[in-house]
């Protein structure tokens, strides 16, 4: 699916990266522990998280994520937004909690992706 479809499914707002909303993504990973993202992400290109600090963007960049969805209404700060713009990562935010956000995307065909 395209990132803009994620926006529709989750009633999410774009924080930054409008130009890349048509990027195709196939699988996602949900976590608040960045250690787990680094340990378990293989080919997933969307990260759902409720954690907001600059290391979320860096972690996502290290594992080649294309989009980060902040759940539970979390708002990334300017440092994070600047970093995401620099790295070409789309940031979205939704008021949904982690479980329904992941569930909705999964039901609509965004897969869990490979495991390491």
């Amino acid at each position: 699916m395209q990132i803009k479809q994620i926006m529709e499914y989750l009633n999410a707002e774009v924080v930054c990266g409008e130009a890349n909303l048509e990027t195709e993504v196939h699988s996602a990973f949900g976590a608040d522990m960045m250690s787990d993202v680094l340990a378990f992400v293989k080919d997933q290109s969307v990260l759902l998280t409720g954690l907001t600090n600059p290391q979320v963007i860096r972690t996502a960049e290290m594992v080649d994520m294309k989009c980060i969805v902040f759940v539970r209404g979390k708002q990334p700060d300017h440092t994070m937004i600047d970093l995401a713009i620099k790295k070409g990562i789309v940031l979205l935010k939704t008021t949904l909690r982690m479980y329904p956000a992941c569930g909705i995307l999964y039901m609509n065909g965004l897969e869990a992706g490979g495991t390491v």
Partner: peptide, 15 residues
Amino acid sequence: ALGFGAGMGLPNMKK
């Protein structure tokens, strides 16, 4: 609280 310190760092480096 920042999302690190799960005890996965060194095992990950090895992996």
